[in-house]
Design a binder for these strands. Structure first.
Lengths: 111, 111
DNA sequence: GTAACAAGTAACCTTTTGGTAACTGGAAAT
DNA sequence: ATTTCCAGTTACCAAAAGGTTACTTGTTAC
């Protein structure tokens, strides 16, 4: 079940609710990046170079609070942290797949 | 084909491109509202009361510039303006349907 | 003669979001 | 003795997004 920020809201519209959870400039891309694999912080950062590390850390924290992904910290030196989608996060895959499909068909320049 | 703001960008990631088009707090809800019917400005405003009329007008203008909907103005008094999805706008329906479905299953409180 | 109608716009302000640069930690390699 | 590794955090600043209130327009109803 959804936790964190989303839980507090009494949502009447399912689309509004979704946007409160995964709206914003970066969250769908982060989820898309984690879709099939767990990844380290630096790995996500390298795959989405346009996002600053500060904002990436913020967004990951919110996604974790909302129950969409888990953060696992290994107490090694240098540190290692892995992010992985929860079952709830994975349940977003159909949405992300439709987004990917639409983008492929309508936005990629076939030149 | 996509026009306006989205056309200028060289998009490498389909999900990033989609977000540039329909990202933001309101656009998916507006598109969802117009999904199956043409609607007047006041009608959209009434169905999405949380959005201010100023922001609604701005978002509708951007969606029109991006080729997702059409604006038809009837020169009557009082004025009448109708908004309707284009074919491109309608092609977003699978995305919006997945969003609606996910929201229904995960956000609506069954209490 | 004034108010209401629809669909906005203009001026102004607040909130949210995002960016940069510098810094932290302890162990390891140079 | 200094630099590198990684995953951040902190302080600070700029830009974007969004909100509020008042105003417009021309015709019709009170």
């Amino acid at each position: 079940m959804v936790t964190g920020a989303a839980k507090k809201r009494e949502v009447k519209c399912p689309v509004t609710g979704m946007i409160q959870l995964i709206g914003g400039k970066w969250k769908p891309i982060i989820l898309y990046c984690l879709r099939s694999d767990k990844r380290r912080f630096g790995e996500i950062s390298a795959r989405i170079p346009a996002i600053s590390r500060k904002v990436l850390a913020e967004q990951l924290k919110e996604l974790e609070e909302d129950g969409l992904l888990t953060r696992t910290q290994y107490n090694e030196i240098p540190p290692r942290v892995e992010y992985e989608l929860t079952a709830l996060g994975k349940s977003l895959n159909p949405v992300l797949n439709e987004m990917e499909k639409w983008g492929m068909e309508n936005l990629m320049n076939k030149s």
